[in-house]
Amino acid sequence: MDQTLDSYIDAMAALFGLPIAPEWKPAIRTNLDVTLRMARLVDEFPLPDEIEQANVYVA
């Protein structure tokens, strides 16, 4: 997975024109890995078909 994340980081940095120092890559990879694990938890949470959207509150 590290190589996949490294490739993704490199591709997104190139797309946005962001220079990334090599010493920052491990921290970026760790942050992205944690973010993906949290997203998987949300994505895998079962919701019943009858669920309704929450109201939108505007302050």
Rank of each mutant, 00 (worst) to 15 (best):
I20C: 02
F45Y: 07
A14N: 04
A11G: 05
P26I: 10
E52M: 09
Y8S: 10
A13P: 01
D6R: 04
D2Q: 07
A14V: 02
N55F: 00
Y57N: 14
M38I: 14
E44P: 00
L15S: 12
M12R: 10
Q3S: 14
K25V: 08
S7R: 06
P22H: 04
I9L: 03
F16A: 05
A39C: 08
E44G: 05
D33S: 08
M38N: 15
A11W: 03
Y8M: 13
S7K: 07
V58C: 05
M38C: 13
D43L: 14
D43Q: 12
A27I: 03
L47S: 12
A39H: 07
A54R: 11
A11E: 07
T35I: 12
E52G: 04
M38Q: 15
D6M: 04
A59N: 11
Y8E: 09
I51L: 14
A11M: 04
V34R: 09
D10C: 03
E23S: 13
M1W: 07
A39R: 10
T30P: 00
F16V: 02
A59R: 11
E44Q: 10
V58H: 03
I9D: 00
D43V: 12
K25I: 06
P22E: 10
P19K: 08
L5K: 01
T35G: 08
D6W: 02
L41V: 13
L15Y: 12
A13Q: 01
Q53Y: 07
P19N: 07
I9R: 00
E44C: 05
D2R: 06
D43E: 13
I51W: 08
Q3A: 15
M12N: 04
L47V: 15
I51R: 14
L32R: 09
G17H: 05
A11N: 05
Q53V: 12
P22C: 02
E23D: 15
